[in-house]
Design a protein around this nucleic acid. Sequence first.
DNA 1: CATGAATGAGTCTTCATTCAT
DNA 2: AATGAATGAAGACTCATTCAT
Lengths: 210, 210, 210, 210
Amino acid sequence: MIDFNEKQLQIIETSERLFAQKGFDATSVRDIAEEAGINVAMISYYFGSKEKLMEAVFEAKIGKVQMRVEALLKDESLLPFEKMYTLIDEHIERVMHSQHFYRIMISEQLTNKNPAILQTVKQLKVRNAELISEIIKEGQQKGFFKKKVDVVLMLNTLLGTVWQSIISKEHYREFTNSQLLSNEEYENQLKKKLSTHIKTLFKAILTNEA
Amino acid sequence: MIDFNEKQLQIIETSERLFAQKGFDATSVRDIAEEAGINVAMISYYFGSKEKLMEAVFEAKIGKVQMRVEALLKDESLLPFEKMYTLIDEHIERVMHSQHFYRIMISEQLTNKNPAILQTVKQLKVRNAELISEIIKEGQQKGFFKKKVDVVLMLNTLLGTVWQSIISKEHYREFTNSQLLSNEEYENQLKKKLSTHIKTLFKAILTNEA
Amino acid sequence: MIDFNEKQLQIIETSERLFAQKGFDATSVRDIAEEAGINVAMISYYFGSKEKLMEAVFEAKIGKVQMRVEALLKDESLLPFEKMYTLIDEHIERVMHSQHFYRIMISEQLTNKNPAILQTVKQLKVRNAELISEIIKEGQQKGFFKKKVDVVLMLNTLLGTVWQSIISKEHYREFTNSQLLSNEEYENQLKKKLSTHIKTLFKAILTNEA
Amino acid sequence: MIDFNEKQLQIIETSERLFAQKGFDATSVRDIAEEAGINVAMISYYFGSKEKLMEAVFEAKIGKVQMRVEALLKDESLLPFEKMYTLIDEHIERVMHSQHFYRIMISEQLTNKNPAILQTVKQLKVRNAELISEIIKEGQQKGFFKKKVDVVLMLNTLLGTVWQSIISKEHYREFTNSQLLSNEEYENQLKKKLSTHIKTLFKAILTNEA
DNA sequence: CATGAATGAGTCTTCATTCAT
DNA sequence: AATGAATGAAGACTCATTCAT
C-alpha cells in the first residue's frame, strides 16, 4: 500500500475524473496538468508515466473498496441475508458515488491494455467472489439459502445491473417520466429502485428452488 | 439506411474489430488501413473523418439489431413468456457473437463524446423498451405477469448481466474451474448458464408478487 | 544498396553536415528540418526515426567509399607501390573532402551506441584490411616489400595521421606560420605535406628491414 | 590551477567516464548524480552548469598531462632519441590508461562547441609542439637527426596512430586472430606493437634523408 | 551547506487530414 | 475514382536548472 502525498492525491483525483470522462487515450497529460493546476512535468516526476499514473489511480481506489467489503462480510453480527442486502446497498452507493472510477475500470477491462491493472481488478473480483461464497455456505448451512447457487452469475447480475443502470441513466430519463427531477433526485430515486430490484433478484436466486 | 459499397463495408468491419480491441483513440487510421489492405487516404475519402467512420460502424450495426428485435416482438405466434425467453436467448447469442461491437458501444456510452452515436444508441434502447412494454402489457392483460413491472430495470438486468459476464469472463475462469475448457466450450457453457440464470430472474420479476 | 529519392538525399546531406558539426545528440530533428527546408515530420516519414536517419547517412556514404577502394586495389595496371601511394592520396583527398562524414564516423566509433552503424563501419575496415593484405602479399612475392608487415598498424597510421591532422588543423595554424593563407590554400598545403609524409612512412614500413 | 574538494573530484571522475562512454549530450546530469551518489542539484551548485563541469574535467586532467610532458622533455640525462622514445611510450601508456578522457577530448575537438575547452586543448598541443621542437633542434645540432623535420606531422602520426588503434581495436580483433586473448592481454599486446611500430616510424622521420 | 521539489523549454514521434495527380 | 506525398498540430516525456528550506 503506497502512500501518496497531497499533490499526488490531487493529481490522482483529477486524473480519475478525466480518464472517466474522456477515456485514457483521449486524456492528455496536459489536460490533467491544467485541471490539477500543476506543471506537466510533475506527472512524469511523480508517477513516471501516464500509464503508471493510471495504475496509481487504481491502487489508491481498489485498496479502499477491498477493505470495506472485507469488513462487511466478516461482520459476525449480521445474518446471511442481511449481509447480502447490505452488500447490495453498499455496492449501489459506492458505484453511484464513484462513477468516475467505475467508468475507468470498465474501460480498462474492455481494452485489456495494462496487465498490471487487469491483475489488480482480477484479484479484487476473485477475492470478493471467495468471500461471498463463504456467506452463502453459511446461509446454506443455516437453511436460509437453497443448495445450488452460482456466485459468479449472482455477482455479475449485481454489478451488471447497477452499472447498466448508470450508463443508460440518461437514455431512459424521458421514458420513465423523470425529466422534471433534479439530477440528485433522479439518482436517489434510481438508487432506491435498484436496491429493491436487486434484492428481489437475489432473494429469487438464493431461495426459490427451480 | 445508407448503402455502403464493398470497400466501405470492408473498412467498417476492420474498424469495428480494431475499435473494440484497442479503443477508438488508440486505433489509428493507419492501423485500420493496413489491416483492411487499403490506402490511408481512403478513410477520409469515403467517410470524411475517423469520427464519421465510427458513426458508420454504428449505423451499419444498429440497423440490423433493431430489425431483428422488432421482428421477434411482433411475432404473434409466441406467448408473452416465450417472447421474453426468446428475447433473452437472442440477446445472449447476439452479444456473444458481436462482442467487438458491444465493446465499442459500451465504450461510447462511457465517454459521451460523439452525440450522433449516443443518439443512435438511445433511440435503439428506448424503442426496445417501448416494444417490451407492450409485451408486458399483453402478458398482464392475459394474467401471466404481475401488475407492476419495471421494464427499464428488467432490461438493465438483462443487458448488464450478460455484459458483465463477458467482460469478467477471464477473471472467473480459474474460480469456476474451467481452465481446461477450450475458449469455445467455455463460451458455450457460459451461454447456457446465462440463459437459465436470466430466465429465472425474469420469471421472478414478472410473476412473484413482492 | 538502398535507393534514396531526391528529398531523402537532401535530408541525408543536411544531416551529415549537422551531425558532424554538432554531434548526433546535439542535433535536433527540428534543426535538420529547418536547414533542409522540409517538415519535421518528414524525417520520421522517410527514415522512421532519427537513428535510422543516421544509419541512412552511413549507408549512403560507405557504399561509395567501398566501391572506390575496391576498384583501386583491383586495378591490375598498377604496381604494388603505386597502389599504396594512390591509396594514400585518395584517402587524403576523400577525408579532406568529406570531413563532415568522417567526423560522424569517428564520433560513432567513440560512443558505440548504434550497433547497426558499428557493424557497417567494421565491415568496411575489415574488407579494406583484407584487400590491402593482398597487395602486400603481391609486393612481397615480387620482392618489393619486406617480409613482415603489420597491415592493421599501417592502416591505423594512415587513417590516424590524416585524421589527427584535420581535427588539430586549426590548433597548429599559428605554429606553422600559416595564418595568412586562405582556408583553401592551407588545406591544399596540408594535403601535399600529408601525402609526402605518409608515403615516407609507408616506404619505411614496407621496405626497411628493422 | 583550481583546487577541487573531494566531492567535486568524485563528480569529475564520474563525469569523465560517462561523458566518454555516452558523449556529452547523451549524458544527463541525473546520470552523473546517480552514479556519483550525489544530489542532482549539487552539480549546478558546485560547477554552475553542465558545461562548466565539462571544463572542470579538462582542467583537472590537462594540468597533470602537461606537467608530465614538461618533466620528461626537460630531463637532461636523456639523449634526444631516448627522449623521443620515452615520449612515445609514455603517450601510449597514458592514452591507453585514460581512454575515457581522450575520447572526450576528441569528441570536443570534433564538435567545436565549447571555446574554453578548445583553448585549453590548443595550449596543450602548441606547448608540446614547442617543447618537442627544442628536442629536435638539440638532436639536429648533435647530428643525430636530419635537417628538416615536420614536428606537427610527426606528432599527428604519434597521436593519430595511437588513437586510431584504440578506437578500431575491436574491429580488428578477429582479423588479427586475437579473439582468444583477454581484454587485458590484447591491450598489452597492442601497446607493445604500437611502441615498436611508432618508434620505427619516428626513426624514419628523424634520420632517413629522403 | 546541501537538497528535494518543481518547472519551462525542449526532445522525438505519431496523428488525422489534405492535396496534386 | 483513388492515392502517395506531405504537413501542422499534438502527443508523452526528459532535460538542466532554480529556489525555498
